[in-house]
Design a protein around this nucleic acid. Structure first.
Lengths: 136, 136
DNA sequence: TTGTAAATCGTAATGATTATTAATTAGAAT
DNA sequence: ATTCTAATTAATAATCATTACGATTTACAA
């Protein structure tokens, strides 16, 4: 997902173009890592000392709802990253050292679907953690 | 995991037998669901009105470290259940209505191991959410 | 340019979890 | 059985992430 696409979505849904949103999207466009609301606050505080947590959380939640960002929980904290542009379903390897992710194009659900009849599957989580080639 | 086995482990590791631990283990032995620290507090408050949150969290963490309980994060909250007795590696279907779990004996990691060379896999999470046959 | 709903700020509230200290208790030693 | 000691607990309070709120500001459409 690039910034232009994100603004297309926001505009279509009637959200306004604010400098805070611009900066948040800018931060996400410059990294492939999962980052925390606090990470974002730290960066934004440099330019806007009176930055509010509320603004960050509110926008992150909006972005997730609109499919602009992806969200996951790592060690009890919310982490966010740009939603992958690839349209095919996939999962992530997440490096616990540097936070970088790698797409995994294997989804175990295909195997699974027929093995638990009577169970209504709504969603699933498949994440692999460890160290990427750069981190060991 | 049954209560006797849990006490074996606790004794072996030098932990004392207290009525609070007994009651916590008792609660877990009576359900197959993932439950929260608050769930436990509510039950225990009935018998011990001066029950402390600290006692629950401390013991839950101890139990997880000793392999007596399993832990997962559901919607931003910690949930616990008895550690499965089956010695083979497996995953869980978790019913988002009643909290019951079903063991899934398919692990996608076998497929995956060779597909991301250079990546050092430390652990993984594979959970399926939805409604069990009783809940739809 | 103006009106208005949306967005933000500043701060406070909430909720989950962890920490602290004094009092209590389990289990070993006497 | 009694005493001793370290483990455990109770009763807070502190911390951390997240959400909520009222007042002010701002984007943008008319």
């Amino acid at each position: 997902m690039n910034i232009n696409r994100a603004w297309e979505i926001l505009k279509k849904e009637g959200f306004k173009k604010t400098d805070k949103r611009e900066q948040i999207l800018d931060i996400f466009s410059q990294t492939t890592k999962y980052i925390t609301p606090r990470d974002i606050l730290d960066v934004m505080m440099a330019e806007h000392p009176g930055m509010s947590y509320d603004t960050i959380y509110r926008n992150l939640n909006t972005f997730v709802e609109l499919g602009i960002l992806e969200e996951t929980e790592l060690t009890g904290e919310k982490h966010f990253r740009m939603h992958c542009e690839t349209d095919h379903h996939h999962h992530h390897f997440i490096c616990t050292s540097c936070g970088n992710i790698k797409e995994i194009n294997i989804c175990p659900m295909e195997l699974l679907h027929n093995s638990i009849p009577g169970y209504q599957i709504e969603n699933h989580k498949f994440e692999i953690y460890g160290n990427c080639p750069q981190c060991h």
